[in-house]
Simulated scan of single mutants.
Amino acid sequence: MGFHEVRFPTSLSFGSAGGPVRRTEVVTLANGYEERNSPWAHSRRRYDAGMGVRSLDDVSTLIAFFEARQGQLNGFRWKDWADYKSCLPSEDVSAGDQEIGVGDGATLRFSLCKVYASGSESYLRPISKPVDQTVRVAVDGAEQPGAAFAVDSVAGAIVFLLPPAEGAVVTAGFEFDVPVRFETDQIVTSVSSFQAGDVPDVPVLEVRV
């Protein structure tokens, strides 16, 4: 599958609806108890891009983007306005937001991730599409200058020029996009129905990259 490192217009994604989807297999036993299992290690997000379309100019922008991706053929970046930072939406990104590894004196590359915690349970989500200019990095609490590392914004990783010392905690803060594709090869629009308040149904689905 192809992937275009371009972001869906944020003016359209701002009004979209969607979020994470899990897959859980539930088997009810004869005694009424359940056995539950999930074949997915990670959730998969789904959105409706049509919800952000407010004018005929928006429709034109949407169709141009759709055609350039050739429908479902090529993936693209999506800004999830409800979850696009390593911190809370109301906070500013800081270099200490997320722990991404511990130095061993040799490793240069550290993959980005975000932890979702509730009570004693947590989920670690890999982040594959950081927004390059927003990434901040710290080693043992000391923020690193931009010259000390590079950002792999295609695969979601930090690459140090020199390896962090053994036992040094590496943290990072960042904004990020979700890798997605259109979940349809057709966009149906009508000028008359749009003026009456209808919007096109444009499903978008997260992809593994």
Rank of each mutant, 00 (worst) to 15 (best):
G50L: 03
L62R: 06
I100W: 13
A95E: 09
V53A: 01
A82T: 13
R22L: 14
G75N: 01
G15T: 10
V115C: 04
S90M: 11
E99H: 05
L88S: 12
G101C: 11
V21D: 13
D80K: 02
V102C: 04
S118R: 10
G18F: 03
P89H: 12
V102I: 12
L73P: 00
A106C: 01
S120Y: 00
F76Q: 05
E99R: 13
P39M: 11
L108I: 06
R77I: 04
V102T: 13
T28K: 15
D57S: 09
N31W: 06
G96E: 15
A17C: 08
K79T: 07
Y33D: 13
D58L: 09
K129I: 02
Y33A: 14
S38P: 05
R54E: 10
A49R: 00
L12S: 03
S38W: 05
G71A: 04
Q98H: 12
V93G: 13
S60W: 10
T107E: 02
W40F: 07
R109M: 14
R109C: 10
V102F: 09
E91C: 05
R46I: 04
K114L: 10
N37T: 14
P126D: 13
E121N: 08
S86C: 12
S55D: 09
A64R: 15
Q98Y: 10
P39S: 13
W40Y: 08
E25I: 11
F76K: 12
P126R: 15
S122E: 07
K79N: 02
L62W: 07
R77P: 00
P89G: 11
D58E: 11
T24H: 06
V93W: 11
R36D: 03
W40P: 00
D83N: 14
S38N: 05
Q72I: 01
A30Y: 10
T24D: 10
Y47K: 01
D48H: 14
Q70V: 01
S16L: 01
A106Y: 05
A41C: 04
Y116E: 09
E99G: 07
G101D: 04
A49L: 04
